[in-house]
Amino acid sequence: MRVAIAGAGNVGRAIARELLDNGHQVLLIDKDPKALKLESVPDAEWLMADACEITSLDNAHLNTCQVLVAATGDDKANLVTSLLGKTEYGVPRVVARINHPKNEWLFDSSWGVDVAVSTPRIIAALVEEAVSVGDVVRLFSFKKGQANLVELTLPDGSSCIGKTVEEIELPEDAALAAIVRDGRVITAKAHDVFAAGDELLFVASSDAEARIKSCFITS
């Protein structure tokens, strides 16, 4: 898979190294000569250019990329790059970094963004997930499909303990993706039995998310 990353700062380079380690081709784009630290990611392609300009993206052959990551420190630049990548080059998957939470509402499909990543929101969700038992915690939002990845840790008094997966009727537009138990990830099957302390991972719409708790926790 060929991945273009706009923004060769610490974030962009870290993403590039991870992707290269996983066997992908990576192109790093940045207009600042000081950001072109070729020795830091020697296996990547490098291009000194402004990712907000069509000519630069032509030179990057963006039409050959399966993924575009807009990872600069400027939200405006990330939005423009995302929009150009999606509308002008038809990049199948566009991932954009949100630097300032107040701009989060802009990062959606109208700007070509499939997945928006907000570091403050992720950290807050992980904190909630670590301390919340019996509450539904949103971990991540999939902008393209208007769905969320949510987590629920079963407390000792959960009404579903001892019941099987097929015995629990979930809301429409909600699916149990996995059960995390004793550090192991279990693909949820119909005859799996719920136990106290299970971390349940769901993919759900926002409306269904609000109703998941009532399926597992009785007041």
Rank of each mutant, 00 (worst) to 15 (best):
Arg2Cys: 10
Arg2Met: 11
Ala4Tyr: 01
Ala4Gly: 12
Ala6Tyr: 05
Gly7Gln: 11
Gly9Glu: 07
Gly9Gln: 08
Asn10Lys: 14
Val11Pro: 00
Arg13Thr: 09
Arg13Val: 04
Ala14Ile: 03
Ile15Val: 12
Ile15Lys: 00
Ala16Asp: 03
Ala16Thr: 04
Glu18Ser: 14
Leu19Tyr: 00
Asn22Asp: 09
His24Ile: 07
Val26Phe: 01
Asp30Glu: 06
Asp30Tyr: 02
Lys31Pro: 01
Ala35Thr: 11
Ala35Leu: 10
Glu39Gly: 03
Leu47Val: 09
Met48Thr: 06
Met48Ile: 10
Ala49Trp: 05
Ala51Cys: 09
Cys52Gly: 11
Cys52Ser: 15
Glu53Ser: 07
Ile54Met: 13
His61Asp: 10
His61Met: 12
Asn63Ile: 13
Leu68Tyr: 05
Val69Tyr: 03
Val69Ala: 13
Ala71Trp: 01
Ala71Lys: 02
Asp75Tyr: 02
Asn78Ala: 04
Asn78Leu: 02
Thr81Cys: 10
Thr81Trp: 00
Thr87Met: 10
Tyr89Phe: 09
Val91Lys: 01
Pro92Arg: 12
Arg93Val: 09
Ile98Leu: 05
His100Gln: 13
Glu104Arg: 15
Asp108Val: 11
Ser109Met: 14
Ser109Val: 13
Val115His: 13
Val117Phe: 07
Val117Arg: 05
Val117Trp: 02
Ser118Leu: 06
Arg121Glu: 07
Leu126Trp: 10
Gly134Pro: 01
Asp135Glu: 14
Ser141Thr: 15
Lys143Cys: 11
Gly145Lys: 15
Gln146Asn: 15
Asn148Ser: 15
Leu149Arg: 12
Pro155Ser: 10
Gly157Met: 12
Ser159Ile: 15
Thr164Ser: 15
Thr164Tyr: 08
Glu166Thr: 14
Glu166Tyr: 12
Glu167Cys: 08
Glu167Gly: 07
Leu170Asp: 06
Leu170His: 08
Pro171Ile: 06
Pro171Phe: 04
Glu172Tyr: 09
Ala175Pro: 07
Val180Cys: 12
Asp182Glu: 14
Gly183Trp: 06
Gly183Tyr: 10
Arg184Asp: 13
Val185Ser: 15
Thr187Cys: 11
Asp192Gln: 12
Asp192Thr: 09
Phe194Thr: 00
Phe194Met: 03
Leu200Asp: 00
Leu201His: 10
Ser206His: 09
Ser206Trp: 05
Ser206Ile: 07
Asp207Pro: 01
Ala208Val: 04
Ile212Gln: 04
Lys213Gly: 05
Cys215Ser: 11
Cys215Lys: 08
Phe216Met: 05
Phe216Ala: 03
Ile217Gln: 02
